[in-house]
Design a protein around this nucleic acid. Structure first.
Length: 273
DNA sequence: AATCGCCTCAACCGCTGCATT
DNA sequence: AAATGCAGCGGTTGAGGCGAT
């Protein structure tokens, strides 16, 4: 009979003793030896995610870690184990959970911003009123039209004629922000990461929190979540107006109305941030 | 105080690649 | 070369906590 579900302290103890004695391998022998009625797979997962030494248990991702995950996800995609190898004390499960909850959060922001109905979670700090979302779109478009540096991505020309009639926030000339549509431009130093390090266990890679001259990621403005922080700041519109939402995944012809705009966006459009 | 919705986290599942037989 | 088992990875789900109403 194979046991599933939450682990008990006694089971953890048995598992730790096993690893101390035989090392983190031969997981299936834990069951065959009659030590635990768990699959080797389950034992391995428990060890990696909870019992392994030097894990950051119950510790939220710091702003720095969040920034690293966001940057590396843009570069590597959903290679959670690879990303986790750059974060000391974090597992692929941690990174995966962080990312998926962040995605849900962003998706909900877009969703609530695109619907003119009362917000279910009133009071949440990251809510965006619809009017803000609309100006968000407009200011982005105006930026596209007014700045030649965004012309490299024509698909950023989003919106419809009626949207042009909306109030436009003036764009301060002194604002400087990276062109997030080209994620590589904000990841210059990642080019220097040695490929040989990718995929290795964190103990073998230079974790971000250890001295690593080759991994110096550019700092975003101080924030907990760079996206949400930017959205709730007083200068929200000024910030978002700097963003280029050009995306190869957006079919411009479908973006006929402000209402349809958010529906057509890929859920991960904010990944550029 | 009760309810609801969201968030986080732990654990499982399915799949793939690799090593061994 | 084929079969098998194992390790590892990414996706998904469910439970519990927490804050807002």
């Amino acid at each position: 009979m194979i046991k599933k579900g939450p682990w008990k302290a006694e089971e953890d103890e048995v598992l730790v003793n096993f690893v101390n004695k035989y090392g983190p391998r031969d997981w299936s022998s834990i069951r065959s030896m009659g030590l635990l009625p768990r699959t080797g797979k389950s034992c391995r997962l428990r060890w990696i995610n909870k019992l392994r030494p030097n894990l950051k248990i119950g510790c939220k991702f710091s702003a720095e870690e969040e920034r690293v995950v966001i940057d590396l996800q843009a570069r590597f995609g959903n290679k959670w184990a690879t990303i986790a190898s750059y974060l000391q004390g974090r597992t692929d499960n941690d990174v995966k959970n962080f990312w998926s909850s962040r995605q849900k959060r962003l998706a909900r922001i877009l969703q609530s911003s695109s619907q003119c109905k009362p917000h279910k979670n009133k009071g949440k700090a990251h809510e965006i009123p619809t009017w803000q979302a609309k100006e968000f779109i407009n200011s982005t478009q105006m930026k596209e039209e007014s700045s030649s540096k965004y012309q490299s991505c024509p698909s950023a020309c989003i919106g419809a004629p009626e949207m042009m009639q909306m109030t436009i926030m003036p764009l301060p000339d002194n604002l400087i922000a990276p062109n997030f549509a080209n994620i590589d431009s904000i990841l210059p130093s990642l080019d220097t990461i040695e490929p040989d390090n990718l995929g290795k266990p964190s103990a073998e890679v230079n974790p971000l929190q250890l001295p690593n001259p080759k991994l110096e990621l550019p700092l975003m403005p101080e924030s907990h979540d760079p996206v949400l922080q930017g959205l709730v700041e007083p200068n929200f519109l000024e910030n978002v107006s700097q963003l280029n939402f050009g995306s190869p995944f957006v079919d411009n012809e479908k973006l006929a109305t402000p209402e349809s705009f958010f529906d057509e966006l890929p859920a991960d459009m904010f990944d550029f941030l």
